[in-house]
Amino acid sequence: MEVLPDVPLPSSIRSRYVDGINGLRMHVLEAGFETSGRPCLLLLHGFPELAFSWRKVMPTLAAAGYHVIAPDQRGYGRTTGWDPDYDGNLASFRLPNLVRDMLGLVAAFGHKNVDAVIGHDFGSSVAAWCALIRPDVFRKVVMMSAPFAGTPSLPFNTVNGPARSAAVDPVHRELAALPRPRKHYQWYYSTREANGDMHRAPQGVHEFLRAYYHHKSADWPDNRPYPLQSWSAAELAKLPTYYIMDLARDMPATVADEMPSREAIAANRWLPEGDLAYYSAEYQRTGFQGGLQWYRCGTSGAFVPELQTWSGRTIDVPSAFISGKQDWGTYQRPGVYETMQTRACTKMIGCHLVDGAGHWVQQEQPEAVNRLLLAFLGEAK
């Protein structure tokens, strides 16, 4: 078995492996393990991140009396047992199976329920579906940086008029036809080429990730988000190029334009070079395809029928949303931020946009995130 270097963690967090989790050997970071009987918090990272993304949050939550668990999710980091092949088992990455992963992990630690599941970016989607499918286990939910749109609808009242077949979304053709031709990053991430583009980036994985994290952070001065009016090419083209890319460019070329200076890198306190080196070493070792499979499950449309099993269901446990005030992710799908608050979640306690944070809110502003999480956990009953 490959011997990997230690994860650079605070002394109150330990790294361990848990076998037999829905076919996975899951790598987990754990805090608050010193005493038994603590309520559990489950923290779920997004792309392109790892359980390591929660290193600044876990000690404070553990100090407040929680058993805090943060896994490298299926497709990521030091968790093994998933298929890394583009032509492999895509269905294993669909949302209900990711929920099954988390149910297995919680049970393995001897918890019948968790006080809250907290997810960031794509982990926000998994957290939302955990709370929707198994509210008896996941008793509260915090979604971060990616609002929840609700469940997909079933074709309705079609007995006398068959439902229209799902057509290819015309927005992609319209984006490509703009005077400055564009493409949506999630559909780029679904291409066969995307993993190789990033894994073999001309600037190297480390420099690629530095530019990517910078471009989506509050350090990039043009991250000044606002709600878009519609899911249309003209409106989507207002998004930064890390979301709506130039048609002919890949992601490494896109973010290279915004690479911070050496002085800015040296001055970065929320992601110093030593922390970034852990991310880059892990992605250099594994590639990016495991995380990209999640996007493919969404863009293919193949797994929507399964999600329609829960059509009309809402998230009825106490919920909250936290994002960076400088994070375009809140608005990247027009109307979803509002839908989450008005229809998808019935017990939403608060939505918080943290100033001085872009997309990586729990890394950029961990103190503010810790305050908001503890306030939510104390208030939500």
Rank of each mutant, 00 (worst) to 15 (best):
G23K: 02
Y185E: 01
T79Y: 11
N22C: 12
L372R: 04
T254C: 09
R371L: 08
G161D: 12
V159A: 14
L353Q: 05
L4A: 05
P48R: 05
S217P: 10
A149M: 10
P170Q: 05
W270H: 10
L271Y: 00
V336D: 05
S36W: 01
A64S: 07
H111M: 03
L90H: 06
L236R: 04
L105T: 02
D72C: 10
W231G: 06
Y188C: 06
R224T: 15
K216H: 04
T79G: 05
R285E: 02
A107D: 08
R285P: 09
A375N: 13
H45V: 01
Y337M: 13
M198L: 11
V137S: 03
R139K: 07
Q284N: 10
R94E: 09
G335H: 09
A237H: 12
K347A: 13
A266N: 02
T346K: 03
V171P: 03
R269S: 12
V369Y: 04
A201S: 05
V57Q: 10
P71F: 11
S190G: 13
L50A: 10
Q365H: 12
P10F: 09
M143G: 09
N97T: 02
L228K: 12
L276P: 11
T314A: 05
P334V: 05
G301H: 06
A267L: 00
V3Y: 12
Y278W: 15
W360M: 12
L228N: 11
R192N: 04
P147R: 01
R134D: 12
V114T: 12
G287T: 01
D275Y: 10
Y17G: 10
E49I: 00
T79W: 04
